[in-house]
Design a protein around this nucleic acid. Sequence first.
DNA 1: AGTGTTATGTTATATTGTATCATTAGTCGT
DNA 2: ACGACTAATGATACAATATAACATAACACT
Lengths: 165, 165
Amino acid sequence: MMSTVAAKDMVKVARNICDKTGNRLTETRQHVLEVLFELDTPVSAYELTEHYNLLIDSPIKTMSIYRILDFLESIRLVHRLRSINKYIVCHHSVGACHHKTPFFLVCKSCHCIKDLEIATEFVTAFLQQVEEAGFLSVGSQMELSSLCKNCQQSLEPNSPGDIHD
Amino acid sequence: MMSTVAAKDMVKVARNICDKTGNRLTETRQHVLEVLFELDTPVSAYELTEHYNLLIDSPIKTMSIYRILDFLESIRLVHRLRSINKYIVCHHSVGACHHKTPFFLVCKSCHCIKDLEIATEFVTAFLQQVEEAGFLSVGSQMELSSLCKNCQQSLEPNSPGDIHD
DNA sequence: AGTGTTATGTTATATTGTATCATTAGTCGT
DNA sequence: ACGACTAATGATACAATATAACATAACACT
Ligand SMILES: [Zn+2]
Ligand SMILES: [Zn+2]
Ligand SMILES: [Zn+2]
Ligand SMILES: [Zn+2]
């Protein structure tokens, strides 16, 4: 497939992470990452399968997509948005990975998301409360069901999928 | 079905809420609420259907359970835990409803949950950041994927379903 | 009773996610 | 290079979760 410069950077980062962690960035995994990156919008595993098969020569089935998404999530290159059952690439890792506990605002109506850059002391204080409650955060993210600006104003919901900054 | 005193209190609260909001607490809805209350553990819609049909005379199908869960969630008597696709009664409403934005810690392993009583100023600060980002929280809850104390210690995960305080 | 509205029953189907086993592709020691 | 081991993928089936669509029943209001 045609890869943008940004996608190539993403892959480079991915390769570094895999090298360091003793994992293999296979061609299929790389392709999944690239397709997901180019889409740049939350997609379901089945949607991703369709896009993959449009863009990549050798066809893939959703079972494999799920496996690869699991893998990519395990090395923190992909976020699974459980509130909408969709997946996105992690944008925290493109430059240098500064992963904490990301807070995603997920629009209930159009499924656009915003990655809330939350103050460090806030996260720290929160995680301390989690710890005091006897729980251990497992590096996942938080999601808040909400309404984006557009969907608040218009009764008409927006077309799904945008990612706001 | 046999209802505990606590369940009857719950129903009384439910009836009040429905009266105030112009909704109807039908017999079926009341039964769903009672069953869910007695279970007192996160259950899926299908699990709830099974329990309902064991406890209540006239049988119900999952479609209706989903509809009633939607209703009960809309009047904030039930929480839908999206990270594990399960449902629980809201324990915030039993005395007097002091609903803000509940933070649920959800154990990835055994699916027990803890409702984290989070400091008010913390919630306020957080919601302000959400607002500044142009999003409107729609009264849902936050969920953090985590590991409970038991599941941290033992490699063996615990049996699913407990609710910790 | 007649009429509009809300809730439920019923059936079918869509969507999301796993289990299982066979096959292929790397890895490593000889 | 060869065999043996492990990791990754292919392929099929199936489970679990959720919604669509339409018919019927219960309720509310005149
Ligand atoms: Zn990230
Ligand atoms: Zn929106
Ligand atoms: Zn609650
Ligand atoms: Zn646990």
